[in-house]
Structure formats: structure tokens, C-alpha cells
Design a protein around this nucleic acid. Structure first.
Lengths: 303, 303
DNA sequence: AAAATTCATATGGAACAGATATGGATATAA
DNA sequence: TTATATCCATATCTGTTCCATATGAATTTT
């Protein structure tokens, strides 16, 4: 059974003439007669009754015609779908992100833009710690991930910087340093004696190390009072008055009751990056599109 | 695009090896490699990544695999359906009948039996006058019809006798001839002076002519008092006391209030036939099966 | 009765599928 | 590390299939 024969059959069925169908198909009449006969022999079914003025479909022919039309359009659809998938215009990608990433407006913007550009690609989002995300990338359970940590030395994983945002201090609202002209940058050294609330290093080593490093540069080692599994949880602990912490500026969009944010005065400027991680040789065209889009949109939002 | 290539593709996708798939398909490895490559070239899509230990599907390949499986099973189904239709095991036939036919248990029995034997053939029933039925047969709107009239001289229509049943007299229950030992045959001449209710000749000339002929043989011409469009309606008129009539015995199964049936004493025996009409050269295998079944079952019910 | 239309058959050439032989790359084993 | 095995790709050849041209047969139309 050959798709070509089905197309020939449909043409003959629709024209009611072998000769006319041959014209439409761009071939001569004798080979078309042969093909129809071959199809009938293959099925052991008479599809047409030969008449002096053309051919007439049998019941079996009518049955096959309906099926053949459906099959042909299904084949065309399948080819189109395969091509679209290869071009990355169709399919499914899974994108991971660390808990703090979606607070920066850049991340939801990229996602929204991708959905507009590639409406046939279903985009699944998944939250996780940096380590989990990178592992999932390697295991092909994820196609890309927004992370804040620096490149984890994982084989075959590429990490591209997207943007940097300043860190700010998060203080309990009753804290002595809180009300003092909030706009004025707070010297990091002022927090030397404060208890710190940390995001668990295992979940996001990059942010953690950056904070500790900055404190060392300012001349002190931060005293860890509490650890929280998610960056949002650290803010809840700050709100409860258990300590202070430093968070990426975009987190301050979350106006949590009991938390006050202040910009930092620290040299060199303390920033938190947003990066995108993906497999170095990525096979999913849709995933490549996603990463490319993020890298293209990245610079335009750097403050 | 060739169905064979799709089958090859599915085999390779399922095995994950070109060599193993070639074994399964009963061909050698090189031509299979060529076919897969040809398919990729045709689609302009990479379907597999060649690895030293086999091949690995791409996203596009996975997309195509799902489609290909569906298409292949659809093709198989289409072939099976075409073959079944050719064998008359699938399809649709329309069977007509005159209003009086279904009263004889033979007709519903044939229909029931056909439905059992050919469950995939949908059987549509249509009632009509003999003339309409024969015309519909010629116009291919009908595939067979149960009629009572003799062969209408219509070109290309074959009529086969199925069975004969005796005629009985239908009298109003208050009629003087009604109560007289109902089992005893009634001489037709006794009805010579009675007003007759007739089934319209145009709708069923066979029955009409048979009755009038029998009356003539008995020495009188029946006086037509009323005509009714359907044979059942004549019985309603008899019940209303407007006259008497003769009906096929099977009609007496309908125990209509106000109507009494009596067997007839008449030489030669007055009978009503049931026949089946169909196209002489019928192209529908299912229709041929139906007619053959009716003719086969017919003799077994002749009383 | 002749012409026209349409499908079937015959024959030759081009394209294609499949077989065998062989090469190249990578993983596995010694 | 070297050797072997595995697996896919390439090259060449053969048989089949598909299509074109030429022609025949049957039926309808002029």
C-alpha cells in the first residue's frame, strides 16, 4: 500500500474518469489505469466499474474514499507537525527557575513573549533549587532553567548571564536602622552585629556566597541565626524579627508587612545575577529558541 | 511519502537500532539506512541522531512516531473496511416494504436474521406503495423491497416469489355472516351483494386485481364503497361498518376491535404472495446477501 | 456507418528498492 | 593501551516498479 496509490485513487474517484484524473495528476492514462488495477489486486476488491463513459465507484470504493481522504489529510498533517517540531514551532519544553527568579519582571516577560511567539509550544514551569535544576537539565527532565548561582561545573551544561540587579538589605520594620531615611544607602558594615537569616546554601550557593563574601569585604563575618529553604521564607523570618538579610532588589516588589528594604552602600557594588542554564548541545529546537529569546531580551532590561 | 517508509520508520523508532529493525523487517541494514535518510531528506527533518550504539529519536521523530502509528493502523483499518464492504459484510442497505408485508412474521424474521448475520451492515427500512418502491429501486434509493404485486414490467428489476398465504374475509363484527361458526369457510359468492372496502389500486395493484378477479370467478363484480390508502386503513373502515374486504391471512393477527375474520371457500384457492424485488444486476454485495437470505428462508415458512 | 471517447494492453526506458561488500567511528574487553 | 565488537554510512550492482508512447477494443454520439 502506497500513499501515492491512495492519491491516485482519490483523484479517479473524484473525477469519475481515469483519463481526466491522469490529467489532473500530471501523468498519462495508461499508468494510472495500471495503478488503479494494482490497488484493486492488492486489496482483492473491485473499486470501480469500468463504463464506456468513465468509471463508477463501487460500494467498497466509496468506503475506501472516505478513509483515503482522511488518511491523506492525516499524512499531510503529520508531515507538517514533524516539520514544525523540527523548527521548534511545536512541542513542549520544561523550564525551571529558582524561587527568587520570577520576582524579577524580566522572567515572566520572557515567558509571556515566548508564548506569543511560539503558541504551539506548550511551556511547563517548574521550581527547584539550583542543584536540582542543573541535575534535571542533565537528565533531560528540563530544557532550560533560570538560576542565580554561577556556572556549576557540570559537564555539558552551559550557563549564560542575562542580567544583574543590585542587592538590598531587608530589615524588620521595627529595627533601629529601618526608618532612617530609607532612600539613603545603608553601609554594609552597619549590619556587622546583626543576626542574619540565610537562604539555605545547598539550594542556592551563589547568592549565599556573594553575601558572605561582601560581608567579609566589609570587615565582618555574618552571624547565621536562621536558615530558610526558600528565599521568600527568609523574608518571612525577617518580618518575624529573627534577623536581617540581603536580597535581590526585585524581591522588594513583594511588599511584605513587617519588612523594610534599604539600598546598600558597598564597594564593589553587590549585585545578584539572573542566568539561564541549558544543555551545551541542546537537541530541542524549541528549547534553543527559548534560550535565544531570553538572551536577546536580557540586555534590554539591565537597569 | 510511502506507507512502507512509515513502517520502516516506526520499526527503527521502536527498536532504537537500524540493524535490529532491519532484522525485524526482513531486510538488510543498508537499504533501511537509505530509506530512513530518504525520509529525512523528504521531510527536511532530522528524525534520529546517530549514535555509536544505535540511534536516538529527536523531538520531531517522537512527534512523527505518534502520528505514524495512528496512520498505519488507520490504513490497515481502511483496507479491512474496504474488503468487508466488498464482501457485503459492512455497509448500509435500504429495504422497502408495502404496508401489509411486515404483518407476516416472515418479514421481520428475515430482517432479524440479517441483522444477526451481518451486524456491520446498517439496515434502513422504508414503507411505500409498490410503484414508489420499484421506482426507488431503479433510482438506487432502495436495494430491495418486499412487495405483493406481481412483477412490474420494469427494466432491470428482478422479482422473486417468497411465499403465498391464503386470503381471508374481513367483516364487521355485527355482520350477519360474522358469527356463523367462524371456522367454517365462507363461500365468496355470499359477499356478492356486500359493499367492498378496497386498498387503493394505485398503491398495490396486485392485491386489488386478485380480489376483483376472484369475485368475477365467483360470478359477481364487487361494489366498491370506499377506498383507503393503506391496507390497515381498510380494516379500520370495515370496523366502522362501511363494508367488507379480503385481506392476506397474516393481517388477521391484528385483532382489531369490530373486525371478524373468516376463511374463504373459493376455487381456485385465493392467495396473496409476498415477493422480493431487487435490481437484476445488483452491485451491492450486502443487498445480494439480503435477497439471498430472504429466498433461502422463504420456503421454510410456506404453510 | 463513421467518428469520438474512454479504458485496456504491449513495450521500452528511467528511477528506485534492496542485496552484498566495505569503510569509519565509538564503545567494550583484554 | 591495544584489540575486538558493534553499529551506521557509503559504493556498486541487480531486479522490480513506475511511467511514457503506441495501439487495440468497446461503446456512445454524430
Amino acid at each position: 500500500m502506497d500513499i501515492r496509490r491512495l492519491r491516485y485513487f482519490v483523484a479517479v474517484a473524484e473525477e469519475g474518469h481515469i483519463t481526466r484524473a491522469a490529467e489532473r495528476l500530471g501523468i498519462q492514462q495508461p499508468p494510472l489505469s495500471q495503478q488503479i488495477r494494482a490497488l484493486e489486486t492488492e486489496l482483492d476488491v473491485q473499486l470501480f466499474r469500468r463504463k464506456p463513459r468513465g468509471v463508477e465507484m463501487t460500494d467498497a470504493g466509496r468506503t475506501l474514499l472516505a478513509d483515503a481522504r482522511r488518511i491523506l489529510s492525516d499524512v499531510d498533517g503529520a508531515l507538517a507537525r514533524a516539520r514544525r517540531t523540527a523548527r521548534g514551532e511545536q512541542g513542549r519544553i520544561v523550564v525551571g527557575f529558582t524561587s527568587s527568579a520570577p520576582f524579577h519582571p524580566f522572567v515572566p516577560r520572557v515567558i509571556r513573549r515566548f508564548r506569543e511567539l511560539y503558541p504551539r509550544v506548550s511551556l511547563v514551569l517548574e521550581e527547584g533549587g539550583t542543584g536540582d535544576l542543573v541535575a534535571a537539565l542533565g537528565a533531560e527532565r528540563l530544557d532550560a532553567a533560570f538560576i542565580r548561582s554561577p556556572a556549576p561545573a557540570s559537564e555539558g551544561i552551559a550557563v549564560h548571564p542575562l542580567l544583574e540587579e543590585p542587592m538590598v538589605a531587608a530589615l524588620p520594620s521595627g529595627h533601629p536602622l529601618a526608618p532612617k531615611s530609607r532612600k539613603k544607602p545603608l553601609p554594609l558594615a552597619d549590619l556587622a552585629t546583626e543576626p542574619f537569616v540565610f537562604y539555605r546554601r545547598a539550594s542556592g550557593p551563589g547568592l549565599h556566597d556573594a553575601i558572605v563574601g561582601a560581608c567579609h569585604a566589609a570587615g565582618f563575618t555574618p552571624r547565621t541565626e536562621q536558615e530558610a529553604p526558600r528565599i521568600v521564607s527568609t523574608l518571612n523570618l525577617v518580618a518575624a524579627g529573627l534577623g536581617v538579610t540581603l536580597v535581590p532588589e526585585s524581591l522588594s516588589d513583594m511588599r511584605l508587612a513587617g519588612v523594610v528594604y534599604r539600598p546598600l552602600a558597598v564597594k564593589p557594588r553587590l549585585t545578584a545575577p539572573i542566568r539561564i542554564a541549558c544543555r551545551a548541545v541542546d537537541h530541542s529546537a524549541a528549547a534553543r529558541h527559548f534560550v535565544a529569546l531570553a538572551r536577546r531580551e536580557g540586555p534590554s532590561v539591565t537597569p
